[in-house]
Design a protein around this nucleic acid. Structure first.
Lengths: 197, 197
DNA sequence: AAAATCTTGGAACGATCATTTCAAGATTCC
DNA sequence: GGAATCTTGAAATGATCGTTCCAAGATTTT
């Protein structure tokens, strides 16, 4: 006998995700969310709960639909070093051009936000970090198997280095870093991994 | 004939700097600043102007007294690779232990903040980035002169890589990253630069 | 068609925000 | 010591914050 929602919650959440991604949680008001989604405050609260839950849902959506697929692709790519190269190329592309240019990575942005102390937010950050390292590690192991790495390279710690490098790219892209410069930087980092490089 | 200030502006600004550094600009209220400094709102506004100017003054103080000295030391250190090694070791130490543990770098934090669009804030970020790269480049040039680098190493782009790595360290430290892990990561990155490494 | 129940719109809540105002207090110069 | 002028404290301003409430509207089941 109940009424049904007059909107698609995930479509609305996508708008919310973009708002929080671009502007951050602290400086995005519920009013701004209502305006951007075209929804009323009542509908927002009834569907998602308060602002905390709304941000958390948006952050999790970002990870699930934007971060995770790219990392899964990286981990399962059988090419080795070229896979890592493409991962970074795509990353720089998304960060510096197109609709999301200058927005950085929502998860990186969350590191400096207010709610970073929130255990639920921390869990997303930690899970993302683990997956980023693991995917990078898997790709490096493939590269090793294919003889693309210098012999002394430790794939585990190198994965950590590349993960931090990715954070750096995401961060600097938010300050308007040049795409060409960033691409040159990651290329140099990857070239250093090659044998007699 | 005028009265003089009943407090030391720079001592107050140091408190403000710590507040903005730890909690960010958006989530630090003027009331919180007044409480932390023991000053009245009137004194704050009369001395520093509004919140924007207050944050800007704190950010510039951070750069001048915390970032710049360390970078100057790095640039002028004649040891080469060991100088870079010590820079990162000190960095990890400050970020993960002591009074400022988990605060990250105020300039890195500013990348994701609200006022990153503020031209004056952007100028501080860009100036810091330039100085970070230049200092790293100078240390790498010293290392090259001393034969500490693999022949193929391009010091300019490698400086970019190490700069992004530093950003990554700062960012992850704010999420509570382990000091030992971070030290291992930067060590691996630097070892990769050495000849036949 | 009518009853039941959820959704929606809009107003309203108290709290807190950055900022201003102004009289009272303090200090320096004459 | 008195006049001049800045600093200081505290209250007040208007705006905006997140959240709640409730009547009106919409939809499904009977």
């Amino acid at each position: 006998m109940p009424d049904i929602k007059h909107f698609d919650p995930d479509t609305a959440l996508e708008r919310v995700e973009e708002l929080f991604w671009q502007h951050g949680a602290a400086t995005t008001s519920i009013q701004a969310v209502a305006t951007a989604t075209g929804l009323n405050r009542s509908s927002l609260y009834a569907t998602f709960g308060g602002k905390r839950e709304l941000y958390l849902a948006a952050l999790r959506r970002y990870r699930r639909l934007r971060a995770e697929p790219a990392l899964r692709l990286l981990a399962e790519d059988e090419r080795g070093l070229p896979a890592i190269e493409e991962f970074f190329t795509q990353l720089v592309g998304v960060r510096c051009t197109g609709a999301y240019a200058g927005w950085g990575c929502m998860i990186v942005n969350a590191h400096t936000g207010t709610d970073r102390q929130d255990p639920d937010v921390q869990a997303v950050l930690e899970e993302h970090h683990r997956q980023l390292r693991d995917s990078m590690h898997a790709a490096l192991e493939t590269a090793r198997r294919r003889g693309q790495l210098a012999d002394a390279t430790d794939t585990a710690t190198t994965a950590d280095v590349l993960a931090l490098l990715a954070y750096g790219v995401n961060l600097r892209s938010r300050a308007g870093a040049d795409a060409t410069t960033l691409r040159g930087t990651v290329t140099a980092a990857l070239d250093a991994l090659r044998p007699q490089g």
